[in-house]
């Protein structure tokens, strides 16, 4: 009898040690001070899920995690490896590069103003930022268990998570929430275009011509690239390919034929940083993109109705107008974006 009791005692002590958390008194104080997003008045309201409001500590923690290679199983990749601040949180590769050195099928998407979207990735297959993070970390760390073990045994992270969420130990849910908070906090709006719209500066004649082309049906860019975000956050087929070469795009999510070849409309803000362009990074320069919309459209019945002069290959604008359009698009560059979000 007494032998059995010893075993029970050992088991209790063992379980106690295995589940031992750092005492809450050593973790600092939970601080839910809300994070104040700086959003211009002409921007629409951002989607913040009720279950994950932005807090100062949450955003700060998410930022630390974002730049920390602890997130990858080999300690060599962080989120910022592909989502680089100097490239508007995208990279310069044609296709995203995976942790095993293989290339993905799509170009890396930039990560600013993404709190305005309700679907993520080029094909819209993911509908929350938290889920996007879940999938990415699953790949970067070969699953969550070992990452959580690493974070929970780290000398700093348990306290930082406790201060941000008032909870311990660190869970998958909390990691996703903190990273999502940081990513939602990345707002880009300080551009020459915004200064022109607010009347602070005057556009050049070339920029003004580009503006006219962009915002009238002459160039007809605005139906998909709606201001002020310069995206309608939707999915469209922009006549990149004929049927035989067409990627299913959004159809792979909805199963609807009418969604064939549709991809997420990217914001045109910060184009200067986000080359190469399109879901497969096929265009290296903005000039190539404008040439495509002017003369290179590929006919298919799935092409969007706003692909002007589809039968003639595009909007057919002059070289001068192409230059003007590029000059206007360059006014959408937020030069403060990289410096605002540098590695902590």
């Amino acid at each position: 009898m007494s032998g059995k009791l010893y075993w029970v005692g050992y088991l209790v002590i063992f379980l106690g040690l295995a589940c031992k958390d750092v005492p809450e008194s050593d973790l600092g104080t939970y601080d839910p001070t809300p994070y104040e997003l700086k959003i211009p008045t002409n921007y629409p309201p951002i989607f913040i899920p009720k279950g994950n409001p932005l807090t100062e500590k949450g955003v700060q923690l998410g930022k630390k995690l974002f730049f920390d290679p602890v997130i990858s199983f080999n300690g060599q990749f962080s989120c910022a490896t592909c989502h680089q601040p100097q490239n508007a949180f995208s990279d310069t590769l044609t296709f995203s590069k995976g942790i095993q050195g293989h290339f993905m099928a799509m170009n890396t998407m930039p990560l600013f103003n993404i709190g305005y979207y309700q679907r993520y990735s080029w094909t819209g297959k993911i509908n929350t930022i938290e889920l996007d993070i879940d999938v990415t970390i699953e790949e970067l760390h070969n699953g969550w268990e070992s990452l959580l073990l690493k974070l929970n045994s780290d000398k700093n992270y348990p306290a930082l998570f406790y201060q941000a969420f008032g909870k311990t130990p660190i869970t998958q849910d909390l990691v996703e929430k903190s990273l999502a908070q940081y990513v939602r906090s990345i707002i880009s709006f300080e551009t020459r275009f915004d200064s022109i719209v607010s009347g602070m500066i005057t556009p050049t004649a070339l920029e003004m011509r580009g503006y006219e082309l962009f915002f009238t049906e002459e160039g007809d860019c605005f139906h998909c690239h709606v201001d002020p975000l310069f995206t309608n956050t939707g999915f469209h087929n922009n006549a990149l390919d004929v049927i035989e070469k067409m990627h299913p795009g959004f159809e792979s999510v909805t199963g609807l034929e009418l969604d064939r070849g549709k991809f997420k409309v990217p914001s045109l803000r910060n184009l200067a940083y986000t080359a190469p362009y399109m879901h497969d990074g096929r265009f290296k320069t903005l000039k190539e993109v404008i040439d495509f919309y002017s003369e290179g459209l590929q006919y298919s019945p799935y092409a969007d109705s706003n692909m002007k002069n589809l039968h003639k290959g595009g909007i057919q604008i002059s070289e001068d107008d192409k230059t003007a359009l590029i000059a206007f698009l360059m006014t959408l560059t937020d030069k403060k974006l990289p410096e605002k979000y540098v590695s902590p």
Binding site: N42, P44, F47, F215, T216, F222, V226, N232, G234
Partner: peptide, 28 residues
């Protein structure tokens, strides 16, 4: 009005450019 329905995706897609008078399309 411009941005009168900012949180409705259909309406974001239906915007009429400020340069052309602002607000929303009635019909396409």
């Amino acid at each position: 009005k411009d941005n009168a329905y900012p949180d409705e995706l259909d309406m974001i897609n239906f915007k009429w450019p400020t340069a052309l008078g602002g607000g929303y399309h009635y019909m396409r």
